[in-house]
Design a protein around this nucleic acid. Structure first.
Lengths: 129, 129
DNA sequence: CTGAATCCCTGCCGATACTG
DNA sequence: CAGTATCGGCAGGGATTCAG
């Protein structure tokens, strides 16, 4: 892999001057990188996305069971945050007990490559230098 | 793009059960995703990496000038953090004034694809669904 | 020129208790 | 079952000041 190789192909690396937003001089929330990091912000967030990526859909209870150390408050916080970010879709089942099921939106599923990139970098030993 | 498409090719999405670390049930620092997010943690961090990605090498003063709103303390904090994370290499020029030049390590340059993935997701409008 | 030390303020996260 | 309300601890980040 060469110096400025980018996964997308011909595009330059992020923040290179082919986009107005690439010239921001402070952490502005409109920067695409900031948008993504904001969506993934907070402890447990990536684990929740992973859980939904893996199973496709999960109820509140299933998520709580999968992540036992995650408190109810933070779980609700994260799900609300991911919902606001357009990552998850919420479905209420009116019966009893009234369960709520969470599914990734198409946009949410597109976080797969993002998490993959994060995973790859973190997993790389970089012996090659 | 289909449900579980991953940029890397045959590998499953991050956190899928082909890796022991994919089964973590709490935000453990050994998780590759956590490692990468930890490296990029903190305000201004991605902008600093972008600056080095763009110019190859920058002095403390140049970085400070490029990011005027970034205080000296946080700049030093971030550079120390990126150094500890193995992302940047520090070079002291003994003369006077004693300048310090920062360069991305090979590992640091490999953050290019990561930032690209973050950029792409944040820039996507996702009209396609 | 670099960067460490200090202080303060803010926001995040966790536990607990409570509501539709 | 699925959250909300509240509180307290702790870490992040900014300004200022001091040192190598």
């Amino acid at each position: 892999m060469t110096h400025r190789t980018v996964s997308g192909g011909a595009r330059p690396a992020p923040g290179l001057p082919d986009d107005a937003k690439a010239r921001v001089t402070s952490p502005h929330p409109e920067c695409p990188v900031e948008i993504t990091l904001a969506a993934l912000r907070g402890r447990w967030t990536t684990l929740l996305v992973r859980e939904l990526l893996r199973h496709g859909h999960r109820t509140y209870t299933e998520l709580s069971a999968a992540l036992p150390r995650l408190s109810a408050k933070v779980l609700a916080d994260r799900l609300a945050h991911l919902h606001d970010a357009g990552v998850v879709h919420r479905t209420r089942t009116p019966g009893w007990p009234a369960t709520v099921t969470y599914v990734l939106t198409p946009r949410g599923r597109e976080l797969g490559p993002v998490l993959q990139a994060l995973w790859d970098w973190g997993a790389a030993r970089d012996d090659g230098d």
